[in-house]
Design a protein around this nucleic acid. Sequence first.
DNA 1: AGATAACTTACGAACGTTCGTTAATCAGAG
DNA 2: CTCTGATTAACGAACGTTCGTAAGTTATCT
Lengths: 193, 193
Amino acid sequence: MKSDDIKEAALKYFTIHGYEGASLSQIAEEVGMKKQSLYAHFRGKDDLFLQVLHDAKETELLSKLQYFSNLRSSQPEEDLYGFLQLIVDLFQQNEQLKFWLRMSFFPPAHLQKEVDLEVIDIEEKTQALLQEKFRKWINEGLLHAEHPRIPTLAFFGVVDSIMLELVYMSDTKRLQEKLEASWKVFWRGISIR
Amino acid sequence: MKSDDIKEAALKYFTIHGYEGASLSQIAEEVGMKKQSLYAHFRGKDDLFLQVLHDAKETELLSKLQYFSNLRSSQPEEDLYGFLQLIVDLFQQNEQLKFWLRMSFFPPAHLQKEVDLEVIDIEEKTQALLQEKFRKWINEGLLHAEHPRIPTLAFFGVVDSIMLELVYMSDTKRLQEKLEASWKVFWRGISIR
DNA sequence: AGATAACTTACGAACGTTCGTTAATCAGAG
DNA sequence: CTCTGATTAACGAACGTTCGTAAGTTATCT
């Protein structure tokens, strides 16, 4: 499918240069066609962008849901640390997560409304899922007793900081060091004494 | 000074629309002049951007250095939590921190080198400063004994996640809740039991 | 003080280029 | 023949930048 090639190229340039900085000529050239030909597949730049955005969001959401549904054991230490590693892996496999991160925090001004809808959707779902996990773990006495919303929000904080580090990353060693440090302190902060 | 008005307007549009999305016409219009007149003050768009960037970095660096040098007491709990509040205050006072955050993580591609130099500079200085603080606190037995680099990196992680939340922020209540949660877990993770 | 020179700031006009988009045309496949 | 997808051509609009110029300010010298 040629549309997928276009979306792949668009993802790349949107990620590097942002919405305004990415030009349809570049994207078209990447897939070996003229920019006017893109209009056979998409209604325009906005349409292309929103489809790429939706795809990126869906794959990210799916990856996270799959990770949590494939957990057999109830071992918060492994499960949570594994989730952080999942984020790192996703970042290095596809460009989609980096694109998603950039656009969810710095969306093109005239599409902020549409972007926000996607952001809110994925956030509510993952947060509800994780908070439920924490609720169980706390009830089972595996974690420090407190309202599950607290470790949930704190963990998303760790995830966010790791993603930011992944964006900036020049060096894998530095990333791993920061991940270990954040995880160590976080785990000590939620585990039972 | 008219140059300052221009830089102020430029900061605003760079923050909202990014480098590529901000146009000199808009910036000029904001200060009540034509875009050609900007060239009496700056050599071009890149020059304007880099000056705004440098100013933003300097004020942020200065704010952080001042905060740490004005600490009289050796009370990590107050000092660290106060630093988080400082970040929140800086974000709501000036636009500069939001601009800085956006550009340090998603710089215009052709200026990445120049931006990186500023980022590395501010990061090295603040990190060295904070790590020294942690070293002292740990030596005084006020914090959990470990290599000071660990709580330093973890704390910067908390700071980053708070800043991301400030960028996204639609709601002050949500921000405060996330800040409290991250702080609670972080503090429990580094304090002595 | 008054005249002159130099510098600063702003403007209109125009430059060449690129942008996203539309329309007409054409090749190839079912 | 029809339909899908790609092309060429062309569009108005906006981009950053340069030029020449005019007005205002400052500095220098007699």
